[in-house]
Nucleic acid binder design. Structure first.
Length: 264
DNA sequence: ACCCCTGTTCGGCG
DNA sequence: CCGCCGAACAGGGG
């Protein structure tokens, strides 16, 4: 389900619990979401600690606890974080529950494509350090984008936009939105893009991410009505600019929608 | 019943 | 090395 902006919204769902102690931890040990993570260590370390703060990079969330404890959550396709009452009883898909005196912080994921990571230590976890600059940051500039595209000249631009090491947090619908705004055909190879097209992709990426954070990221409210996202899942989806029927195909392994008139 | 899915990783192939 | 493909994870929704 979630891309960058939705992840940002889910990250904040646990904000009420900041400053409060974890009094109990419930874990569905052995589930796929805990692959590579020792759930017993997670449990033993988090009980008695306080949730301090959280941050997000791309689609990855990091929750920091007192005593040098770090919890990483990736929502995958169907994961979500939410808050429940302190007497919450975890259901089949509620794989991690952090109980506080006044609430329960819950991670739920029916399909289990998400990922829960844990690290104890003074230093930031290794899986957190290596990350590309956020699209909204100043470090994400035209030069960074150009250099990344230059490393994937033969790949369709749609596939390149989905690569998290170049465009952290961009997922399927945001990639389509960016290319529609930039008026670039998703199947076009990165190496075939001229300077003007690269600049338009850069600007569209900044715009789409910023506006998504202001709507979905802040209130989970809809992006502007004029965006492609409202059309791309419709069977009879049309271009918001002039109502030309959208086309669909699999590009970069993912369903892709575009306007054959705007995007060349 | 059938088909599709806002994610990521991995092995195999060309 | 590059990039693509299918599989894997295990359901849920239309």
């Amino acid at each position: 389900m979630p891309e960058l902006a939705e992840v940002e919204w889910y990250r904040k769902q646990w904000n009420d619990g900041r400053g409060d102690e974890i009094v109990d931890v419930r874990v569905h040990t052995g589930k796929y979401v805990f692959r590579g993570t020792n759930t017993r260590v997670l449990q033993e370390n988090l009980v008695g600690k306080k949730l301090l703060r959280s941050t997000r990079r791309g689609k990855q969330m990091l929750f920091e606890f007192s005593g040098d404890n770090w919890l990483g959550i990736h929502l995958g396709m169907t994961g979500k974080t939410h808050v429940e009452s302190p007497d919450f009883r975890p259901g089949k898909h509620d794989h991690l529950v952090l109980y506080q005196q006044k609430r329960a912080l819950v991670f739920t994921d029916p399909r289990e494509l998400g990922h829960v990571l844990f690290h104890h230590g003074a230093d930031e976890p290794a899986w957190w350090k290596q990350h590309a600059p956020e699209v909204v940051s100043r470090e994400f500039d035209q030069k960074f984008l150009d250099q990344f595209l230059d490393r994937h000249l033969k790949a369709p631009i749609k596939a390149v936009l989905l690569m998290q090491r170049g465009f952290p947090g961009i997922g399927n619908w945001m990639a389509d939105e960016i290319l529609w705004r930039a008026k670039v055909l998703p199947s076009k190879r990165a190496g075939k893009l001229n300077t003007r097209e690269r600049v338009k992709i850069f600007r569209a990426a900044k715009f789409v991410v910023r506006r998504s954070l202001e709507t979905l990221g802040r209130h989970f409210s809809d992006p502007p009505r004029t965006w492609l996202i409202h059309q791309r899942w419709e069977n009879s989806g049309v271009c918001p600019r002039h109502r030309t029927p959208l086309r669909r195909a699999t590009i970069g392994g993912r369903t892709t929608a575009w306007c054959p008139r705007c995007q060349r």
